[in-house]
Design a protein around this nucleic acid. Structure first.
Length: 986
RNA sequence: GGGCGUAUAGCUCAGUGGUAGAGCACUGUAUUGACAUUGCAGGGGUCGGGAGUUCAACUCUCUCUACGCCCACCA
């Protein structure tokens, strides 16, 4: 930039430009075939998504790491892509159809999916554009999508492999299997969901007590002819199949094995003994609805009901349907399970009918006045399950679904975390991880959706033996008549990656069962019932593919290797798997991280990464969780517009201490914008003084104390930064570079070297200082680059142009990480520390005495330490400029009122005498000295006390005793000095 | 019911077995070339309560209190 930089840094002017430059030049993925690889994968955001503040945090941290490793010369790869997000995406597209009074079911499955793809092409790029605005240096050239062809191959292969997996002796492990059991069913989305997608919320509800009449002639021990049961879900009584009591409950011992006659349906159901019934609770008897309650399902199984026998009284929409025994009265059919949109449902009608029949036991409540009032039910807070996407109450529903045996897959990851093979940072999450993994339940992976990876399973016809009818052949029949209720397990199922392979499996199966005719197959999607008629029509055998798709997390679990090209053994997989680190929010520890561990282990035989970093949530300024419904969502793009991406990123880094959520604080973001401006202006200062780019990685030769000192400071900063990064302490890393830049470089170094640029300074000094200052600024830019990529790139180039060495071909994003390799003399650093101490003390004293800071004061130093005399000789200009002591005389001060100011030199100090005649009221100086004296005395006394404690001297660490002694010596000398100074003032 | 986390300056947060730090806010002050999106100086905390271990506790242990989160089938 030959033109002068403007005074104020305007992020908007440079961000887009540099991002485009990096991307176009392929700098996110520089060619480094021989370098050590470093790999992270981005948690793929939903393709429907837009960037929220949590993404901003997550991606900032990852970008810091990847830019840092890239600068350190690694072959750094940050894999990026988006997730097809089955439910979420399908919902978005369905909602759009609804807006046009249209709906999904007006389309064929194929056409609908085509629409989703179209939508993805149109709008799926939102979040990736926004990630670019944040400055994320991902490898876009290999952008992934979980439904890309190669990714789909990986998903299908994994599914088939898990299905076919066998142990050493060839027994099927059933790592994936189909089972009929209760699932969490979302009646709004009409799909099964996994346990993790269920959110339990406390809801105000009611607790009803009913009488279930005992069958004729049966009574309880106390003579009652009914059993009292209580429930929060009366509507499910239409599908009750038993009443359970505790085996040891005396009250009911006589009726176990007898039956009750259920009201409304008249169904006679057994009274069973089961541990599940808690005698302490309510009446001790509990109604059992195995088809609509998880506990009851288990009780039902124990009572001897097969899953297929368990009554179902609800449709997938949550409406009442007829049970298999046909006992649900007509008036209930078609009602919703409970009140919805103000219309009563089955729940309300059941209560009404029972009340009419005198079978409702009212709840007696007392008013404040002590009067007894009857209510239909007892009010109660009920922990109610909701679907996290659909937002409606989950219905346990009996269906056939595909399950992953997570318990088997979890074993190895548990071991890996326990052994440290996988490190979780912060480690406090390990317990949570173990707690979940060790109690893990089968993972329901099938979803009744259209958008997603279709399950690679085909169902074939059932073989029916017709030999009894003299046909001498077996026939095949099929019933593909329903899409709502998934096909029964009775039909043979063939799991394979393709239809052809499934056909082969099917043929094998038929041959094994004595089917001898020539066989051809066809894949059917239509719904119909039929049987093979050998002589007419299309006699190819139909195979129907499972209509369901897989849980989105099933595919994203493969992300660390499928994105690299697995299962094809590509170079990328070789080089970049396992990844080096995973950064994710703790909220997806179970959803994603744990599943990656399982699938990484299963498919690749090892952990997907050795380290897992979990960060917290970004909360609103008041500490509340951000949510659309609360309207407290902070848009990261708004912050970028206002303060720049660099400031937002730096905020995220500086606030990211391990194990804590981040509270949003705009003022702080603004503060980091100010920091950027500060750096911007420091660079302007350098520009205007002929300070430019450095051509060396190692620190330039330096003889001047200030230059040596700053080189030493850079060295320390690099070390601190590296150590913070190694520990993934983003806050410490950010603060290190922040304070070095502002406090050390801007506030002291630039001030120290200003005299060099004054007229009359030596040419050698000027040259050296320019070289050092330019080098230091370069190091700052590189160290800061991972945090603030845009401004550092801009200033990097501003530096280079001035020095006449164009950096057009050498951007900072691929620059080299600092490696000062410098020897810094202690004498030099001591000298500058001395100047800084002196300056601060003079300024402080002046301030307290009300002397204007600009005032130049004459000073006398009667007894100069070696450090003092050398420093005064070599750095007089700096002392004059900063401390404003001039003239400075190395001799006794003339008599008269004066103030004393010290500069620390070793344990002692140099005491400057500054005459105050005509400058200030002596009283003020006396007050100042008295205050300092009191402080010194207090310190000295406290230390004296400690040193007087025999226990301390004997038992404390020797270093601690030494330090206490030294501190005591220092403070008592200081007190003495101040006391005599006071005395002199009179 | 189980598990975890957090309580430090007005606010948001770091931190260490030897008697506390940052940013913002606050107070005073400074302005003719890097920067008022600034400089300089300063005030402010018995580190949630209690007990214990220790020569020494804000730091380790126990306990209490408050708040938050996760998991769990109470009909």
């Amino acid at each position: 930039m030959s033109e002068q930089l403007p005074t104020t840094f305007d992020p908007a002017k440079i961000e887009a430009r540099w991002y485009q430059h990096w991307e176009e030049k392929g700098l996110f993925r520089p060619e480094r075939p021989d370098a050590e690889p470093f790999t992270i994968v981005n948690p793929p955001p939903n393709v429907t998504g837009s960037l929220h503040i949590g993404h901003a945090l997550d991606n900032t941290l990852q970008d810091i790491v990847i830019r840092y490793e890239r600068l350190r010369g690694k072959d750094a790869l940050w894999v990026v892509g988006t997730d097809h997000a089955g439910i979420a995406t399908q919902m978005v597209v369905e909602r759009q159809l609804e807006e046009k009074q249209d709906k999904r079911t007006n389309y064929s499955r194929e056409d609908f999916i085509k629409k989703v793809w179209e939508w993805k092409e149109e709008s799926g790029g939102t979040i990736t554009r926004q990630l670019r605005r944040l400055g994320c240096s991902m490898d876009w050239s290999r952008e992934q999508f979980t439904m890309d062809e190669h990714f789909t191959d990986a998903v299908l292969k994994t599914f088939v492999d898990l299905y076919n997996a066998k142990d050493e002796v060839g027994n099927r492990l059933n790592l994936i299997y189909r089972d009929k059991r209760l699932v969490n069913w979302d009646p709004k989305l009409k799909t099964a969901i996994s346990d993790l997608e269920v959110e339990t919320q406390d809801v105000k509800g009611s607790f009803w007590h009913f009488k279930y009449p005992l069958e004729d002639g049966v009574t309880l021990a106390d003579g009652r002819d009914y059993i009292e049961v209580a429930t929060t879900r009366p509507e499910t009584m239409l599908a009750d199949m038993a009443v359970a009591v505790h085996p040891s409950d005396e009250r009911y011992a006589s009726v176990v094995g007898k039956r009750v006659v259920l009201p409304i349906t008249g169904r006679r159901v057994p009274i069973v003994a089961d541990e599940h019934a808690d005698p302490e609770l309510g009446s001790g008897a509990v109604k059992i609805t195995p088809g609509h309650d998880f506990n009851d399902f288990e009780v039902g199984k124990r009572a001897g009901f097969a899953a297929g026998e368990m009554l179902n009284m609800l449709t997938g929409d949550g409406d009442v349907c007829q049970t298999a025994d046909g006992l649900v009265p007509d008036e209930f059919l078609g009602l919703h399970r409970f009140k919805r949109d103000g219309t009563n449902g089955a729940r309300e009608l059941v209560v009404e009918r029972l009340k009419e029949a005198g079978l409702l036991i009212p709840h007696i409540a007392k008013t404040k006045k002590g009067e007894e009032v009857e209510h239909d039910a007892e009010p109660r807070t009920i922990a109610t399950p909701f679907g996290d996407r659909g937002g409606v109450v989950i219905e346990p529903w009996l269906t056939d679904q595909w399950y992953v045996d997570a318990e088997k897959l979890a074993a190895k990851p548990i071991e890996q975390v326990r052994s440290g093979e996988i490190e979780i940072v912060p480690a406090t999450w390990e317990k949570t991880f173990f707690n979940w993994m060790e109690n893990i339940q089968p993972w329901c992976v099938s979803r009744q959706l259209w958008w997603g990876h279709r399950i690679p399973a085909w169902y074939g016809p059932t073989i029916v033996d017709r030999s009894d009818r003299g046909e001498g052949e077996r026939d095949l029949v099929w019933d593909f008549s329903s899409d709502d209720v998934v096909i029964g397990t009775s039909q043979p199922c063939f799991v394979a990656e393709t239809f052809e392979e499934a056909s082969n499996l099917c043929e094998e199966y038929f041959r094994k069962h004595g089917f001898t005719r020539p066989i051809e197959f066809r894949e059917v999607t239509d719904l119909h019932v039929g049987h093979l008629i050998p002589t007419s029509g299309d006699n190819r055998i139909p195979l129907r593919r499972d209509p369901d798709v897989l849980d989105t997390w099933f595919s994203s679990a493969l992300w660390p290797f499928a994105t690299l090209g697995w299962p094809n053994d590509t170079d990328l997989v070789q080089k970049h798997f396992p990844n080096n680190l995973l950064i994710s929010g703790f909220d997806i520890l179970f959803f994603w991280d744990a599943r990656m561990m399982m699938m990484g282990q299963y498919n690749m035989g090892q952990a997907p990464w050795p380290k897992l970093y979990l960060h917290g949530l970004v909360r609103a300024a008041d500490g509340a969780k951000m949510s659309k419904s609360k309207g407290n969502v902070v848009d990261p793009l708004g912050l970028i517009d206002q303060y720049g991406a660099d400031a937002l990123r730096f905020f995220m880094a500086a606030m990211e201490s391990q194990g804590r959520d981040i509270k949003m604080d705009d003022e702080r973001v603004k503060g980091y914008r100010n920091f950027a401006t500060k750096l911007w202006n420091a660079t302007r200062f350098c520009q205007s003084n002929g300070i430019g780019a450095s051509s060396t990685l190692a620190a330039p030769e330096a003889r001047l104390a200030a230059n040596q000192w700053i080189i030493g400071e850079v060295q320390q900063t690099v070390e601190k930064l590296e150590s913070a990064m190694a520990d993934l302490r983003f806050d410490a890393a950010a603060n290190t570079i922040y304070h070095f830049t502002w406090d050390r470089f801007c506030d002291w170094y630039l001030e120290l070297i200003k005299p060099v640029f004054a007229e009359g300074a030596s040419e050698t000094a000027l040259e050296e200082t320019r070289a050092v200052a330019g080098w230091v600024l370069d190091q700052i830019l590189v160290m800061l680059h991972p945090f603030m990529p845009f401004i550092t790139e801009e200033l990097w180039h501003a530096q280079g142009e001035l020095a006449g060495t164009s950096r057009a071909e050498y951007p900072i994003i691929t620059a080299k990480w600092p490696s000062p390799r410098a020897e810094v003399s202690k004498a030099a650093t001591d000298a500058i520390d001395w100047v800084i101490d002196l300056t601060s003390n003079v300024r402080s004293a002046k301030n307290e005495l009300g002397i204007p800071p600009g005032t130049k004061l004459a000073a006398f130093l009667p007894e100069a330490s070696d450090l003092a005399s050398n420093t005064i000789e070599r750095s007089s200009a700096a002392i004059e400029r900063l401390a404003r002591l001039t003239p400075l005389t190395l001799s006794e001060a003339p008599s008269g009122p004066a103030m004393q100011v010290t500069a620390k030199a070793g344990n002692a100090g140099d005491v400057f005498i500054i005459p105050l005649e005509g400058i200030i009221d002596i009283g003020e100086e006396k007050a100042r000295l008295e205050k300092a004296l009191a402080a010194s005395q207090k310190e000295a006394k406290s230390l004296e006390g400690r040193l007087g404690n025999a226990n301390f001297v004997e038992r404390a660490k020797p270093e601690a005793v030494e330090k206490a002694k030294a501190d005591f010596a220092h403070h008592s000398a200081e007190a003495e000095r101040l006391a005599s100074a006071l005395e002199r003032l009179g």
